[in-house]
Amino acid sequence: MAQKAGLSIGALADRTGMAVSAIRYYEEQGLIAPWRNAGGQRRFPRADIRRLSFVRIAQQFGFTLPEIRSLLDELPGGRTPTPQDWSRIAARFRVRLDQRIETLQRLRDNLDGCIGCGCLSLPKCALYNPDDRAGDKGSGPRYLMGDKPET
């Protein structure tokens, strides 16, 4: 198939292992941008195989579609991304993955004493939060998310 002709949505589905409905959804979300041929059919650049593969991987790591779109928006439009383009994206992806790994490790290390306890009031507990002082820092389990309790 000539590069200029692009891939049909069915061919893209076959190549990526995704359902056509999923590809349409990702199109609606702005993650891929096909064009229409003279007959009005969607055509996708071959580079969308890689983009959709990246979407699947990023979702498996817990990234939201807006986060994924933000990363993919850095790729060039009108040409196939180069290895340098993907390296730039990978660097940002790595930073976010490292942040998630750090958060997961903090959860692992601090939750084991509290699971099943339910008291949340012991001074040694990482969740200790008298008068909801952590609430001033934002929503969620602030100390487990990295904020330090005031001493």
Rank of each mutant, 00 (worst) to 15 (best):
L71M: 11
N37P: 10
I23C: 12
A11N: 06
L71T: 01
I49D: 14
L107V: 11
L104F: 12
S70H: 11
Q84K: 13
Q84C: 05
G78K: 11
G17L: 05
R42G: 05
I23K: 10
P45D: 14
R43F: 08
I49C: 15
T82R: 06
R92V: 03
F61K: 10
R36D: 06
D48R: 00
R43H: 13
A33G: 12
D109Q: 09
N37M: 06
Q29L: 09
L52T: 00
R36M: 05
R42L: 08
G30T: 02
L72H: 03
L71W: 04
R24A: 06
I68R: 02
G17Q: 05
F63V: 07
L75C: 04
A11E: 13
S21H: 15
R96E: 15
R51W: 01
Q105R: 12
L97G: 07
D109V: 02
R42I: 02
D112C: 03
L104R: 10
D109W: 04
Y25I: 00
L31D: 13
A19H: 14
G78M: 08
Q84M: 11
R94W: 01
Y25S: 00
R100H: 13
Y25P: 01
Q41L: 14
L71V: 04
I57L: 15
R46K: 09
F44K: 02
Y25A: 02
S21E: 15
A22W: 00
D109S: 09
P81E: 11
G17P: 06
T16V: 03
Y25W: 06
L65K: 01
L111K: 02
P66G: 07
R24D: 03
P83T: 07
F61W: 08
P45N: 05
N110K: 13
R51N: 04
L111N: 03
T16Y: 02
L104H: 11
G39W: 01
R94F: 00
L12Y: 02
Q29T: 06
D109K: 03
G17H: 04
A22L: 01
I68G: 05
A19P: 01
G39N: 08
P66Q: 06
G62K: 08
R51C: 04
P45W: 09
A13C: 04
S87K: 10
Y25K: 01
R94G: 07
R88K: 09
L72W: 06
A47K: 04
A91I: 06
R79F: 09
R92F: 09
A11W: 00
P45L: 09
L12T: 02
L31A: 13
D14G: 00
I9L: 00
I89A: 05
Q84H: 13
Q84V: 12
D109A: 11
G78T: 14
Y26M: 02
Q41W: 10
D98C: 07
Y26R: 03
G30A: 13
E102V: 09
L104G: 10
T16C: 05
A91M: 11
Q41Y: 15
S21N: 14
W86E: 08
D98K: 06
L111G: 14
I101S: 08
D85Q: 07
I32D: 11
T16S: 00
Q59H: 12
T80Y: 04
V95T: 14
A47H: 08
R108D: 12
T16P: 03
L75H: 07
R94S: 12
Q99F: 07
G62W: 09
L107K: 09
W86Q: 10
R24N: 03
G62S: 10
E27P: 11
R51G: 04
S8Y: 05
I9Q: 00
D85V: 03
A13L: 02
I101P: 02
L97S: 07
L104I: 10
